[in-house]
């Protein structure tokens, strides 16, 4: 049964035809052409497909599209802006070479993004716990944790600066 559904992704509204069995990852990728979100296990086990749904990190490969209608969805494509370029977190990933093959990177970034919004000053251990559901086969994780910690300290500096100003 086909339905026209509305999705709010990265601040934009999309109307698209979906079927009840379609998962959010497929809708983002195949209907909306937002292919930055990756499917790696289609079972909610690896975190590569993580997007934010109403601010919460969510495995889009096991989230039915029907349930994500009219919710606020954020994907990796929404992190950078034409005005400001790469986000602080993305810049830190680049500088630390935290992406090797890059297939887990979108999910890592979205998971880390959610963490930093909830807890802007996490410890290294808290960062590790936050990304413990995201599998990376290339990096050995160290550079990813380094990057997130670097973003934490950069954001802190920016905040301090803004407060003073």
């Amino acid at each position: 049964m086909k339905t026209i559904a509305t999705f709010h992704v990265n601040g934009q509204e999309y109307d698209t035809v979906i079927e009840p069995h379609m998962v959010l990852a497929d809708i983002l990728r195949d209907n909306l052409n937002l292919t930055g979100t990756k499917r790696a296990c289609s079972g909610g086990n690896c975190g590569a497909c993580t997007v934010l749904v109403n601010g919460r990190p969510t495995c889009s490969c096991i989230t039915l599209g029907m349930l994500a209608r009219d919710k606020d969805i954020e994907t990796v494509e929404g992190l950078a802006s034409t005005k400001n370029g790469l986000s602080t977190l993305q810049t830190a990933f680049v500088q630390n070479n935290a992406a090797q093959c890059g297939f887990c990177t979108s999910g890592m970034l979205m998971t880390a993004e959610a963490l930093l919004r909830e807890n802007p000053q996490p410890t290294r251990q808290e960062v590790k716990i936050a990304i413990s559901g995201n599998i990376c086969r290339c990096t050995g994780y160290i550079k990813i944790v380094d990057a997130i910690m670097e973003a934490v300290s950069t954001l802190q500096t920016i905040n301090n600066h803004n407060e003073k100003a």
Partner: peptide
């Protein structure tokens, strides 16, 4: 920085 890293953090890399 390796030349292809930026597109991997923005979701622009094409697999």
């Amino acid at each position: 920085q390796k030349p292809d890293v930026a597109q991997k953090v923005t979701g622009q890399a094409i697999y």
